[in-house]
Design a binder for these strands. Structure first.
Ligand code: NAD
Ligand code: NAD
Lengths: 259, 259
DNA sequence: ACGCTCTTGTGAAGGCATTCACAAAATCGA
DNA sequence: TCGATTTTGTGAATGCCTTCACAAGAGCGT
């Protein structure tokens, strides 16, 4: 167990992608998702002063198995050395380049409520290749306040900001009821990638990518497995009981049935 | 496009699951992840007063295709009526039951910094089947303060709280440097499911499930596709230019190459 | 009672992703 | 120079998931 399959997202609209990289190869989506993980692990290694790493140890640092890691890296080309491993710095550069992180991408954050404030202050974005270039909210009390040295702008400015800063990625942290409307405006202004925290399905034209983060859904997935474990334990307990007893039904809840 | 494949998570450790439901059938992981989505869509429909829904319209409300939805629901049993559709209330109950949401599960939240504060105040958890039963931090300045009517407890109390409230699910929102340590304590206290926000790979025993949320990774995945689009646009622009020009290289960045 | 229409439920096919397992490449020491 | 050792890169096999396409079932009007 330890985690679910490969965490096939709770989320997920539908579509397909393939990318032609420098070498002309194609990178599977599942691989792209893991490249981000490898990058994180490589950064730790570099910080620790490691210059070279084997697929085995990088894989374990990233929490995947080494065959998968090697196959993933093979889509980028051959940057390892047989018998030795991968050069940490070179591989980092390769992955950054594949992910398009060499240009410190500008990101807009829409909605500076509870979640938005936390995100705006999150150091992990900056350190991993993103520059928050615009903070937007429509609450007059928030507009003009500063978060991490950046002023919150009124949502009337949304289109101007997206164009002025050449923003292609936006994060939506507004209530679900206005998420589609905000999304439409972002798309109209030229945004092509959206990370959506609102529990709403966004409709976008085909050239726009949406990824969603649904925290309650994540918990529900955990709940399913947790429940499964409990039911399993029940079955086993009952089986054990049946020996001494006859036909027991343990006290545990056991939700898997037919309601 | 519209979204990536099925948003194979950026995250994901490795493992496999299968669940025997009431009918003795097995529910694929990919399906479990989508059940949470369907549930959300069903709740909206119920709020709107809809009593019955076809696979076609429920699918579109959830942003998936209808064949997939029907196949997914078929793992729970036959709760639809041919020629008519699904009863919203009945289906809701079925999914809730499958996900183990009929017992308002108690959740612990560890770390009440920027992110933790936002999560603690998030209404979406309560409305979708979870009760935040414990808030834990080790910062003396936070302990004793109240968030949504619940007092923040000192982390020394962690084990006691988990046992007292019979908590099996925990959310980790502490710095990455202490995430493993917090995780170990949670597991030792009896937690079996963890949602991890810290950018760190957690090692857990096999009976414990971990799901991770890595926001920077999400952005990096978006970045990859965004970059791909830009490169593609370049190629096309160059091809067009080549006709009038000879051999042009457009101004655009074009990061997909070999660094 | 019957035929028409609608929509589910599901075998079968096809497509991806993961895992296996090993030949090929590189280094090192003798 | 050569053999031992290490570790990559990748065909091939396997297993999931998705998608297709349609028979079976349910309601409805006549
Ligand atoms: N708080 C969390 O931990 C959390 C977790 C997961 C998901 N979410 C989701 O994220 C979204 C935001 O959550 P929150 O807790 O921060 O809510 P919030 O109410 O605290 O913040 C929403 C913010 O959006 C702003 N806003 C509203 N309409 C706007 C518009 N048209 N343009 C620009 N800004 C606008 C509001 O002024 C407010 O500041 C919600 O959809 C919520 O469901 C929140
Ligand atoms: N802020 C964000 O939007 C965001 C987004 C994604 C991921 N994250 C991650 O989530 C985690 C929290 O982020 P944050 O911005 O809230 O950080 P933060 O520094 O604001 O909060 C961390 C909290 O954890 C508490 N803490 C530290 N050690 C603890 C321990 N041993 N036991 C209990 N509590 C402890 C601290 O007192 C603090 O209140 C980090 O790992 C961060 O990388 C944050």
């Amino acid at each position: 167990m330890t985690a679910h399959r490969d965490q096939l997202d709770a989320l997920g609209v539908a579509a397909d992608h393939r990318q032609a990289n420098g070498a002309g190869r194609t990178v599977p989506d599942a691989t792209v998702a893991r490249l981000a993980l490898y990058l994180r692990a490589l950064t730790s290694l570099a910080d620790a002063g490691t210059a070279t790493v084997s697929s085995e140890s990088l894989a374990s640092a990233a929490g995947v198995n080494s065959a998968k890691l090697r196959k993933d890296l093979s889509y980028l080309g051959s940057y390892g050395v047989r018998g030795v491993g991968y050069d940490v710095e070179l591989l980092t550069e390769q992955i950054r380049s594949t992910l398009g992180l060499n240009q410190n991408r500008a990101v807009a954050l829409i909605g500076l409520g509870h979640l938005g404030q936390a995100l705006a202050g999150y150091a992990g974005f900056a350190s991993r290749g993103f520059r928050i270039a615009a903070l937007v909210d429509n609450d007059a009390a928030l507009v003009g306040t500063f978060v991490r040295g950046l002023a919150v702008q009124h949502s009337d400015e949304l289109e101007n900001l997206v164009r002025a800063e050449d923003i292609s990625i936006a994060v939506i942290a507004v209530p679900a009821s206005v998420a589609q409307e905000v999304c439409d405006r972002l798309v109209a202004a030229g945004v092509t990638s959206i990370l959506n925290f609102a529990p709403a399905v966004l409709n976008v034209p085909p050239h726009v990518d949406v990824r969603k983060v649904d925290l309650a859904a994540e918990l529900q997935i955990l709940s399913f497995h947790d429940n499964r474990k409990a039911v399993q334990a029940d079955i086993e307990a009952d089986a054990a009981l049946a020996h001494s007893n006859g036909a027991g039904l343990s006290a545990r809840a056991g939700q898997a049935g037919t309601a």
